[in-house]
Computed example of a mutant assay.
Amino acid sequence: MKLAFSTAFLVAFFARSTASAAVRRDIFDPPILSPGSGTVWMVKTTQNVSWDTSNPPEPITDRNHSSIRLTKGGRQLPLVLADQFDILLGSIEVEVPWVTEGDDYSIILFGDSGNWGETFSIKGGPTY
């Protein structure tokens, strides 16, 4: 009986120690507002990417380590449209790169995690 109590005490102690050692992660995954479905961007123009900042966690540990990437057909392209900005800005202007025309582009907003926007079109680039 004494051994069972000691074992239970040790298990509870280590479980509590492990739980208290866990670091709270403040994940902020704000919804992308624009570009949205039906949006058309032209290559080599300046466009606005915006996201909803109305419900951020408190606190955000590294809010200036955000990035916006472009995807095509569900694949991330090696293009960084914006980098190292404050996630609480809610919007940022980007230059549309010289890419092939298509109706299957989307934006990924990286703050604490990746957040994919709706599919939109880019026109004015080369066609294949």
Rank of each mutant, 00 (worst) to 15 (best):
1 M>L: 09
1 M>F: 05
1 M>H: 12
2 K>W: 09
3 L>C: 11
4 A>Y: 04
4 A>P: 03
5 F>K: 13
6 S>Y: 09
7 T>Y: 09
8 A>V: 10
9 F>L: 15
9 F>Y: 11
12 A>Y: 01
13 F>D: 10
14 F>Q: 14
16 R>T: 11
16 R>L: 09
16 R>A: 15
16 R>I: 06
18 T>H: 13
20 S>A: 11
21 A>M: 11
21 A>F: 06
22 A>I: 08
22 A>C: 12
22 A>E: 13
22 A>Q: 14
23 V>N: 04
24 R>D: 13
25 R>N: 13
26 D>S: 10
26 D>M: 08
28 F>E: 02
28 F>L: 02
30 P>W: 00
31 P>H: 06
31 P>A: 15
32 I>W: 02
33 L>K: 08
34 S>Y: 03
34 S>T: 06
41 W>I: 05
42 M>K: 15
42 M>D: 13
42 M>H: 14
43 V>R: 08
44 K>T: 14
44 K>P: 05
46 T>M: 09
46 T>W: 05
49 V>T: 00
50 S>F: 02
52 D>M: 05
52 D>A: 02
53 T>K: 08
54 S>W: 02
54 S>F: 06
56 P>H: 07
56 P>I: 03
56 P>T: 08
58 E>V: 15
59 P>M: 07
59 P>A: 07
59 P>Q: 10
60 I>R: 01
62 D>T: 14
62 D>G: 08
64 N>S: 06
66 S>W: 00
68 I>S: 04
69 R>D: 00
69 R>K: 11
69 R>H: 05
70 L>T: 07
71 T>K: 14
71 T>A: 14
73 G>T: 09
73 G>P: 06
74 G>N: 03
74 G>R: 07
76 Q>R: 15
77 L>W: 12
78 P>C: 09
83 D>R: 13
84 Q>D: 15
85 F>P: 01
86 D>T: 09
88 L>F: 04
90 G>D: 04
90 G>E: 00
91 S>V: 02
92 I>Y: 00
92 I>H: 01
92 I>S: 08
92 I>D: 02
93 E>R: 12
94 V>D: 03
94 V>H: 02
95 E>F: 08
96 V>W: 04
97 P>G: 14
98 W>N: 15
100 T>W: 13
100 T>K: 13
101 E>R: 07
101 E>H: 01
102 G>D: 00
102 G>P: 03
103 D>I: 05
103 D>C: 00
103 D>A: 07
103 D>V: 08
104 D>E: 11
105 Y>I: 00
107 I>W: 05
110 F>T: 06
110 F>S: 10
111 G>R: 00
112 D>Y: 08
112 D>V: 08
114 G>F: 10
115 N>K: 12
116 W>T: 03
116 W>N: 00
116 W>Q: 00
116 W>V: 03
117 G>F: 00
117 G>R: 05
118 E>L: 11
122 I>P: 06
126 P>F: 10
127 T>Y: 13
128 Y>S: 15
128 Y>E: 14
